[in-house]
Amino acid sequence: MENEGRRRFLGVCVAGATAAAAVAAGYPVFRYLAPRAGQEGAAKLVIPAGELKEGDAKFFEFAGSSAVLIKTKSGELVALSAVCTHLGCIVQWVKEKQQFQCPCHGGQFSTDGTVLGGPPPRPLAKIPLTVTEGNITIG
């Protein structure tokens, strides 16, 4: 009986030491592989208002993802995520139709991000923006 107890105790010790060693080796490897913090890019971006004509769109990187700024024909400025809500492709601006089209599965979005057709389940996410002294601040 005493031997059984010792054997169990040693077993628990060995298992514990092995688990500790696995964590000690696994944690650095996990941290090494994990995406690094602070790599998402600027959370705020300033674009000169003069860069964009009415009816045009400007694609840019924002907070580690793709985004688009459009100036509608009525002069309204809208910033949206350019990532299609269906399967994550980047939507394209169709200037003639003044709408977005996803090249992957034909999803269509209006200038305010609303789904006009195709498989996307949700509208494009809106990004807040402010206009001051001729500069558009996104985010």
Binding site: P28, V29, R31, Y32, A34, R36
Partner: peptide, 9 residues
Amino acid sequence: NEVPFGWLI
């Protein structure tokens, strides 16, 4: 210098 635990690997 930059990658976490890169020095260790």
